[in-house]
Computed example of a mutant assay.
Amino acid sequence: MRSSRSPRRLVASLIAVPLLLAAAPATATAARAQIAAVSSTVASEFAVDVIAHRGSSGVAPENTSAAIKAAVQQDADFVEIDVQRSKDGRLVNFHDCTLVRTTDVEERFPGRPSYRVSDFTWAELRTLDAGSWFHPDFAGERIISVGDVIKQVDGKTGLLAEISPCGHYEGLPADLDAELRSIPGYVDEALAAGELAVQSFEVDDAKAFKTLQPRIPIGLLDADRPTEAELVELSGWADQVNPQWTVTDSALVARVHQLGMDINVWTVNEPGTMRRVDDLGVDGIITDFPQSLTNR
Rank of each mutant, 00 (worst) to 15 (best):
R8P: 01
R8A: 01
R8C: 01
R9T: 05
R9A: 03
R9S: 04
R9Y: 04
R9M: 03
R9K: 00
R9P: 01
L10Q: 01
L10Y: 05
L10T: 01
L10F: 09
V11F: 02
V11H: 00
V11S: 00
V11G: 00
V11Q: 00
V11K: 00
V11R: 00
V11L: 05
A12S: 02
A12M: 03
A12Q: 01
A12K: 00
A12D: 02
A12R: 00
A12N: 01
A12G: 02
S13C: 07
S13P: 03
S13T: 03
S13W: 06
S13K: 01
L14D: 06
L14E: 09
L14C: 03
I15T: 08
I15M: 06
I15A: 08
I15G: 03
I15R: 02
I15E: 08
A16G: 05
A16V: 07
A16K: 02
A16S: 08
A16P: 06
V17G: 02
V17F: 07
V17E: 13
V17K: 01
P18V: 03
P18G: 08
L19W: 13
L19T: 09
L19D: 15
L19K: 09
L19C: 12
L19S: 08
L20G: 04
L20W: 04
L20D: 09
L20S: 03
L21H: 13
L21W: 14
L21G: 14
A22P: 02
A22L: 12
A22R: 12
A23N: 14
A23T: 14
A23Q: 08
A23Y: 10
A23S: 09
A23H: 08
A24E: 15
A24N: 11
A24V: 09
A24M: 09
A24K: 04
P25R: 05
P25Y: 12
P25D: 15
A26D: 15
A26P: 11
A26L: 09
A26I: 05
A26W: 12
T27V: 07
T27E: 10
T27L: 06
T27Q: 07
A28M: 12
A28V: 14
A28E: 14
A28S: 12
A28F: 09
T29W: 08
A30Y: 13
A30P: 06
A30T: 14
A31H: 10
A31S: 11
A31C: 05
A31D: 13
A31Y: 12
R32L: 11
R32W: 11
R32H: 13
R32M: 12
A33T: 13
A33V: 10
A33Q: 13
Q34R: 04
Q34S: 13
Q34F: 14
Q34W: 14
I35L: 10
I35K: 02
I35H: 04
I35C: 10
A36C: 07
A36N: 06
A36D: 12
A36V: 06
A36Y: 10
A36L: 10
A37K: 01
A37M: 07
A37Y: 09
V38Y: 02
V38L: 13
V38Q: 02
